[in-house]
Design a protein around this nucleic acid. Structure first.
Lengths: 134, 134, 134, 134
DNA sequence: GTGGTCTAGACCACC
DNA sequence: GTGGTCTAGACCACT
């Protein structure tokens, strides 16, 4: 389910968060589901345990999961926290879109980006060497 | 020209940047125009000098202005810098839109936000009640 | 200013957060103030850099500080985030106080705890060996 | 006896625990009384069995009930366990009150919350509008 | 077994 | 110089 890209600009722990959110949005994961243990996830993804731990901590802060020491980590959506996050994100989005307009980024490009993300294309333009001219 | 809103969640320095961009987009400011000195701007807007300094630094980073020591600050659009800013912004936008999708913010809301900003509505929905006509 | 207790149950990174909040509440630190760099703080407190980094990250999540890579870490209170945190905390408090009542913890004890914290007594009853009779 | 509020920010299992404590405090339940089986309770409250299981586990940890395999679940107040729970709760309370002070929650509000709970007001200020029981 | 904390040390990007 | 990320490995508390 998870597919990490070591070379990407996005930190590994963030990729874990992102892909968990995606799994949640697509229904692959649901409230109450248990996530793999830190050690197992680390083994599976071939990353350090600390990296997984950080991803889990991050998700806990986002109100996505709940951790019970000694038992495991479970999907548990905190509507309150998420509502607050949504409002803050909308404010950030306004700021960013304002900048985007100034820099000549068209609505079409914004829409395309949104749709690509929705389909799980994520970030297909090269990340390491970036062939495009700058 | 500037109209700052203390108390808004957008930092003051950001508001200065935003409104300068708007002035540029509307043609109130043009390439070569001189901006007030930091000290004067701070006095006019009744904000701390450091706030203006930060706004100017931000705008310099965005390739909007150029500071010539001993002469002043001038509008000077640096295409290269703006291109770099554009790419950074697109990456940020991808991150933000990914979050937006997870939090249930629809494409329609994104489009509406973009269009509102384009029309100069900026951020009309206040902080507290705002019935918000659309 | 900071005084960490290695033997305490409270994690070191949390103690840094707590004591920074206290400094903020007492006015020793104010909006815009720069915190020591991660390395300097780590040297001063004789803890690992990662521990300080985590404390700073935690505070960033709480909306207490803003970090600018290459420049430093600054006090910057995010009212929005703090308002949300306040509401969530009140809900948690209600839950906890409900439990407290059931377990026979009197209002006087709650008040005493609050006042002690306010005066900066923090947690004076031993933490490691706890000499107190039960 | 039980009246659960789906949609509330308090988890269902916690509501079961809370209301069982309340019943104990009011004398509706007494030492030795038998609680319904997990399955029956789940059917009655129209919740998942795992929710009830978790509530029972929680109450067992708090020293409120005892499960006798093959016979059922009984109210059984374990002073030792409750003493332990009390100490853990006091530590949690200290943490929470520290945060409360930082976030500007006054002692008066804490006292008010305590008194409201004591009188059984529980949580009358709804989430969105919810004027009363539904 | 579970997650949580902490250290020590490496490498990176940005200013 | 600044913070950010990641690894490797140790020890702890709780179930």
């Amino acid at each position: 389910m998870y597919d990490l890209d070591t070379g990407a600009r996005t930190p590994l722990y963030q990729q874990i968060v992102d892909q968990t959110q995606e799994a949640l949005a697509r229904g692959y994961l649901q409230e109450g589901d248990q996530l793999p243990s830190v050690r197992e996830m680390a083994r599976t993804l071939v990353v350090n345990e600390s990296t997984v731990t950080r991803a889990y901590r991050e998700m806990e802060g986002l109100g996505m999961i709940e951790t019970v020491v000694g038992r495991g980590t479970f999907i548990s959506l905190d509507r309150d926290k998420m509502e607050g996050a949504k409002e803050r994100l909308l404010a950030d989005l306004r700021d960013l879109l304002g900048q985007a307009i100034f820099l000549g980024i068209g609505l079409d490009e914004v829409i395309r980006t949104y749709r690509d993300l929705e389909e799980g294309k994520e970030n297909e333009d090269g990340d390491t060497t970036s062939p495009g001219a700058d």
